[in-house]
């Protein structure tokens, strides 16, 4: 099934995006491989948070520099992503640790029941890392959209000041924010219908404090917060880089 779908995706990408499409296909699989290696290395017992951060850095390198080339735009995006990543990490770290966000709950007892829970590995760190990896895709997407647009504005009017460039970057950011949030909402909520059906008798107070609900809502909100924060940061860094690079 995976092979058939991949083949169709490959053909479509090649038809629609030509060379760039084929490149996209390979980046996609490289990123998938990256996630799988991330899981394998975790199973070896290396620290989950450090591995997640390395995965995020590599993911940005792959989709920025391999797909879009090494230039001012991608450099600015890369630095902006790292800045936001640090912020999100601190946020998730404190919230995740104090709310015991880790692990599974009663809901999945049937699928995890066969396994031993004594894995000698901190599951809380795994979840913190997962939130970072979950947000990195949208960070890359938003950031590269803004920095290319800022660059485009500069190419059309080389006399523009840094402040004006920053402003147009923010403007573009406003335009993409609502669609980004939409994309994330559907991508993250689609699997949630079952949860609500399962707990349909539950009160709001019960749901709000329930582990799985908290896990999912925190995941969605972290991705949202990341995709907002990346806007001013990329607008600032890319306008700074582009202006200073031209000297």
């Amino acid at each position: 099934m995976i092979k058939i779908l991949s083949l169709i995706l490959f053909i479509l990408l090649a038809l629609v995006g030509r060379e760039r499409g084929i490149k996209t296909f390979f980046t996609f699989y490289l990123s998938l491989l990256l996630i799988i290696f991330y899981i394998i290395f975790m199973s070896f017992g290396l620290n989950a948070i450090i591995l997640a951060i390395i995965t995020c850095i590599l993911a940005s390198v792959i989709s920025l520099f391999m797909l879009n080339g090494y230039n001012v735009k991608t450099k600015a995006s890369f630095i902006s992503i790292m800045v936001v990543l640090v912020f999100i990490f601190l946020l998730v770290f404190f919230i995740g640790k104090s709310s015991s966000i880790q692990g599974f709950s009663n809901d999945s007892i049937e699928s995890i029941g066969a396994y031993s829970f004594e894995i000698n590995y901190d599951m809380c760190d795994v979840f913190i890392g997962m939130y970072l990896v979950c947000s990195i895709g949208t960070l890359i997407d938003t950031s590269i959209s803004i920095s290319s647009a800022v660059n485009e504005v500069y190419e059309n009017n080389k006399k523009i000041t840094q402040k004006e460039l920053f402003k147009s970057g923010m403007n573009i950011g406003h335009d993409i924010l609502s669609t980004t949030i939409n994309t994330l909402y559907f991508a993250l909520v689609c699997g949630f219908i079952g949860f609500f059906l399962w707990h349909r008798g539950g009160t709001l107070g019960y749901l709000l404090n329930y582990k799985v609900f908290a896990q999912e809502v925190i995941k969605v909100l972290i991705a949202f917060i990341g995709s907002i924060l990346i806007i001013p940061i990329t607008a600032f860094i890319s306008s700074h880089f582009i202006i200073n690079d031209s000297y």
Binding site: R20, G21, S31, S63, C134, S145, L184, A187, L188
Partner: peptide, 12 residues
Amino acid sequence: IGTMTNVMLFTC
């Protein structure tokens, strides 16, 4: 397309 496919991959 390049970044959008990546968004879907990492998010889901």
